[in-house]
Every structure is written in structure tokens, then in C-alpha cells.
Simulated scan of single mutants.
Amino acid sequence: MDGRAERLRQARIDKGFETAAAAADAFGWNRNTYASNENGNAPFSYRRAKEYAAAFGVRPEWLYDAAGGMRPAAEGGLAPVIGRVGANPDGIVLFATGHDPGELAPIPPGGTDRAVALRVVGHSMRGVADDGALIYFEDQRTPPTPDMLGHVVVVETDTDEVLVKRLLRGSRPGLYDLESVAGPTRQDARLRWAAHITAIIPPFQARRIIRGAA
């Protein structure tokens, strides 16, 4: 799979579509054409990249040739709330669906146009973030770094799960243990990327600052 196809797949998953067919059906695309674009068998044009980018909320320049950031610069210093986390002990991030109008929240101090937020749902993350809180991170998609060890971070596994977990060393290089705030530790996971949490906004303040996307 080439880089363009891989970015398309990433954009589709981040938007909350589990399969290529689900995305194609939602936006009225031909299933076979879209699947061929995503698996790299049929490279897509910049014109098609603009269509896919608009549907998945990413920049067409990034989708087509990896130029610049993944998402458009946040307008008015706002970051998108891209999903929710903590509804169960697994710490799995549930992304917004393709038809969700979305929510926005102010970028925290030190944040960039790659800042995104997750809304905490439920009480399985008590002690880190309570029900209704916002968790911010920079959506940079870079490998784990040593300074993340021992900290609660946002990660993506090689099985397409995005999780909020405490990052620990695994049994050998390249593998990591993922400790839950509540629940069992997942051992020897392979990760595609990890990101520091840059801010946690308590529930009371989060309710005041979240706004609906235009």
C-alpha cells in the first residue's frame, strides 16, 4: 500500500468508519472504486483527493502528497472534539461518525493547529479525567518516545484501536504494555503512534467551553 492510500485509510478510520464499504455508502461513492483507491490498486487524482478530504475532514494537500498538517487549521483558535473515551475499562476511543456535526473547544496553551480533544464519558478514568472532562493531544502520528514511559498517553495499536493508557515497557524492544486506569493491563502491544496528553479540562469548565461546529 502506498503512502497516499495509507493516508486515505487513516482518514477514513479517524472519521469513524470501520470499513471502506461503510464510508463509500455514506458518501455515495462506488464501493469498488473507493476500495481500489484505499488499497492502492488505483491511485486517485487530486480532484478526487479534494472530495475525500472534504468528507473526512482533512486537508487535500496532506491526503494527496503528505504536505502540511493532516487537518485544516482550527478557526478562531478552536480544536475539534474528535471522539469520546472512557465509557468502559478498555479505554477505547470511539470516534465521531461521518454524520456527526462535531464539537469544538479552545486550543489549550501551547497547542497548535494539530490540537484535538476527546470527551470523557463514564467513570472508568476517575483519577485521571472525570465524566465530562476534555483530554487534549497533538494529532502528530509519531512513534512512542522514551519520555512517554510511565505516563498516560493516547496511542494507536497495530490492530486499529486508539486507546488512552499508561505506557510501559514491554518484554522486548518495540513492544509496550498498556496499563488501564481501571481494568487489566494489555501486554506487548505494537503501536503505530503515541501522543502526550497536553491538557485535561475538568467537566465543569469543559461544559462551558465546548461549542457545536458550524
Rank of each mutant, 00 (worst) to 15 (best):
N41F: 03
A213W: 02
A67W: 07
A22P: 02
D147R: 09
A199H: 14
G122Y: 11
R211F: 00
A73Q: 10
V155K: 06
A96T: 14
A67R: 15
D147A: 12
F27C: 07
G132N: 08
G57Y: 05
D100T: 07
V116G: 05
P60Q: 04
K15Y: 00
L8R: 07
A199R: 14
T185K: 13
R71T: 12
W62S: 05
F137E: 06
G77S: 11
A214K: 09
Q10C: 01
R114G: 12
G91F: 11
S45V: 01
A199Y: 03
W62F: 03
W193H: 11
P109Y: 05
R4M: 12
A129F: 13
P173G: 12
G122R: 09
P109K: 12
M70I: 10
A5F: 10
S36H: 10
T185C: 06
Y52S: 04
L134C: 03
A22N: 08
F17H: 14
V164K: 09
F204R: 15
P106S: 11
L134F: 13
V85T: 08
G183F: 08
D25Y: 07
P203L: 08
A20E: 03
A49N: 05
A22V: 01
G170T: 07
M70C: 02
A55H: 07
L94H: 15
V128P: 00
P202M: 06
R211K: 14
L8M: 13
F137K: 10
A213M: 08
T159H: 15
N32T: 14
I201W: 06
P146R: 13
G77F: 13
G40H: 03
I210L: 15
D131W: 10
D65Y: 09
A206K: 04
G110T: 04
G77A: 12
G98L: 09
A26D: 14
L134P: 02
S36F: 06
V155P: 08
A5D: 02
V154D: 10
T198E: 05
D25H: 04
V153F: 00
A73G: 15
V81D: 07
R141F: 13
A129L: 12
G69I: 03
D131A: 12
